[in-house]
């Protein structure tokens, strides 16, 4: 039973909005296209075959970059996850590609025997194995879909730069707000506890605010400042980068609002540790950290960070109690 060729309506303004929302983690699970074979333009038996994920942002990015060309687009079922992440999980993988090539009857749709995959799909797909099992040769295209037209026009030869993953400021700043929002969940818990503590002891809202803004600053340091200034903050370790920026912030807090030694000690111990932890979490969003590297960082810094945060919190609570 060969599946029919699918068509998708052109992206609309509503799609653009949903794309933004899905990047922010809203409605992401429903932002999918049906897996299968799509025709872009009016592809014939000699049209190239591109392979992508069934995350709608990925699908639309290919359509946008390839507008005006006649191609086949083979969409794998990656449960709505982008190519790189899905390849890491194995859903954008050898088995899924082989099954999909067969189920859409690709061998009868095209005369050639070439599949063009995004380079980052190589994390999950073994090209030589796909060739062995389907007769289709896998060619890895560029990392970024924007370079795909040039890649095709050059006879499927990539320039070295097309093969490199970058991590420009624009991309880091797009990820920063999301990191910040995720960290805010923890901050909200702190704020709730602090509100009960402060107001329960007859404090005012401004007492609460003065307890909260230093910590909020250390969240910004770890989730926005470190990602933004990533290449320029000293140290290669993300935890140390976060610690350093957090320390600068804690120094500023102590200078701006001097409140005794115990308070200063508490801020200097707690705030940098919070920033360090959040910056360490940004390894997951970065495009160049390795698992063994992150393991090394955790082994070196997790305990000192936790101890510092705990000691700082104790000092700050003592400061609050004695007041």
């Amino acid at each position: 039973m060969i599946e029919p060729v699918l068509t998708a309506p052109p992206p609309t303004g509503w799609d653009a909005l949903r794309g933004v929302l899905s990047r922010w983690g809203l409605g992401r699970n429903r932002y999918r296209v049906k897996p299968g074979l799509y025709g872009l333009g009016s592809p014939g038996p000699d049209a190239p075959v591109l392979v992508t994920a069934n995350y709608k942002l990925s699908f639309d990015a290919v359509r946008r970059a390839m507008a005006g060309r006649d191609l086949w687009l083979l969409v794998l079922d990656t449960v709505g996850i982008n190519v790189w992440c899905a390849a890491g999980k194995g859903t954008f993988g050898t088995d899924e590609l082989v099954i999909r090539v067969r189920s859409v009857g690709l061998g009868d749709k095209v005369r050639h025997r070439v599949l063009i995959l995004p380079q980052l799909g190589a994390v999950g797909v073994a090209g030589f194995e796909v060739a062995k099992r389907t007769g289709f040769k896998v060619v890895y295209g560029p990392v970024r879909v924007e370079a795909l037209p040039a890649f095709l026009d050059r006879g499927m030869k990539a320039l070295p730069e097309m093969r490199r993953v970058a991590f420009p400021l624009s991309e880091r700043l797009m990820l920063a707000p999301l990191e910040f929002l995720q960290a805010l969940r923890y901050f909200a818990v702190f704020l709730g506890l602090a509100a009960v503590w402060t107001l329960g002891r007859g404090g005012s809202a401004s007492d609460l605010a003065s307890a909260a803004w230093p910590l909020l600053g250390s969240v910004v340091a770890g989730t926005v400042v470190v990602p933004g200034l990533l290449p320029w903050v000293p140290f290669r370790s993300f935890a140390l980068k976060g610690w350093l920026v957090g320390l600068a912030w804690a120094g500023f807090v102590c200078w701006a609002k001097p409140a005794g030694l115990r308070m200063a000690g508490g801020q200097l111990l707690l705030l940098p540790a919070v920033s360090a932890f959040l910056a360490l979490n940004f390894t997951g969003a970065s495009t160049f950290t390795s698992q063994n590297g992150v393991n090394r960082e955790i082994g070196l810094f997790a305990r000192p960070m936790a101890a510092s945060a705990l000691a700082g919190a104790v000092l700050l609570i003592l400061h609050g109690v004695r007041r």
Binding site: W24, G25, R28, A61, W84, C85, E171, G284, A285
Partner: peptide
């Protein structure tokens, strides 16, 4: 095994 439950963003990074 290490798993970050990732799946967002513009396809060049993970875990956010």
């Amino acid at each position: 095994p290490p798993d970050c439950g990732c799946g967002s963003d513009q396809g060049s990074s993970c875990c956010s």
